[in-house]
């Protein structure tokens, strides 16, 4: 059946892209621990971002032909999609501003108190959650409600794991190592402030993403979405991938680039 073949190849593409992303992430890690190559890390982060934006967030759909009838669901979805991407562009400026702040204040240094293993761990968890999100959205696209709910539940749990890992494990460990926002050793400079604001702002977006995931999961349970009409699912998925996209830049910015001081 052509239909199930399509679904299979769509899921297969998700796997392939995930493998690329995983390899690139591991490469980043080994490049960073082996030698100081900021430009290489930037290139790899941009490559990962491009893969996520194209294959997971389907940015090309912005140029899709939505038909001529402005009252059709397809046309309205196209309008919604454009609005969502503009929102992400706007939100992206917040994170760009934080990156600019980090570059200005820290330059080619990074906090030495962070646990490299934990950093790689939470990054992997978020990346895997993006993989399951893609599977969930693909399932919904082919009308597989059960598959969607299962994959979204896994995504939700992994996202929750990331949130707990950053806020309740990494923050505690870093603070115990002496990386504090304010009252610690003044010799740390603004390291702590930058670390906590970047991870905090990102974690806030993870939290809102989790709420969206719960909402679409719950609505799918009630049978609100169909293979043709599931804009809510697409929006939640694209937003979730966006949260991952931000982390693709924040992870090297906080853990990998420059020398640990």
């Amino acid at each position: 059946m052509a239909h199930s073949q399509d679904k299979h190849s769509a899921l297969g593409q998700g796997v392939t892209i995930f493998i690329y992303l995983a390899i690139l992430t591991l490469l980043e890690y080994f490049v960073a621990v082996s030698f100081n190559a900021t430009s290489l890390l930037v290139v790899m982060a941009v490559s990962k971002a491009a893969l996520v934006m194209y294959y997971y967030m389907h940015i090309y759909k912005l140029g899709a032909d939505d038909g001529a009838d402005p009252h059709s669901y397809a046309y309205k979805t196209g309008t919604n999609r454009f609005g969502l991407w503009l929102f992400l562009l706007s939100d992206g400026f917040v994170f760009a501003g934080l990156l600019a702040t980090r570059i200005n204040l820290l330059g080619f240094t990074r906090p030495h108190q962070l646990s490299q293993i934990l950093g790689l761990g939470v990054t992997a968890v978020l990346l895997i959650s993006s993989f399951f999100m893609n599977r969930g959205e693909t399932a919904m696209k082919y009308g597989d409600r059960k598959g969607f709910m299962l994959n979204t539940a896994i995504t939700f749990l992994l996202g929750l794991g990331f949130f707990i890992g950053v806020i309740f494990v990494e923050w505690r460990l870093a603070a115990a190592e002496g990386l504090t926002a304010s009252f610690g050793n003044p010799a740390d400079g603004p390291m702590g402030a930058v670390f906590y604001i970047m991870t905090g702002m990102h974690a806030f977006h993870v939290l809102t993403g989790l709420i969206f995931l719960y909402v679409v999961w719950n609505n799918a349970r009630k049978g609100v979405y169909t293979a043709e009409k599931h804009w809510g699912v697409e929006a939640a998925a694209v937003y979730w991938h966006f949260v991952d996209l931000v982390w693709i830049f924040f992870y090297p910015a906080l853990y990998l680039i420059g020398t640990a001081v």
């Binding site: 200005n104 204040l105 926002a181 304010s182 003044p186 400079g189 603004p190 402030a193 930058v194 604001i197």
Partner: peptide, 17 residues
Amino acid sequence: FQRLFGMGFFDAAKGGN
């Protein structure tokens, strides 16, 4: 945040700018 939590983004004494 600087005012609430003492995060020194713009506080030169804490290495901010």
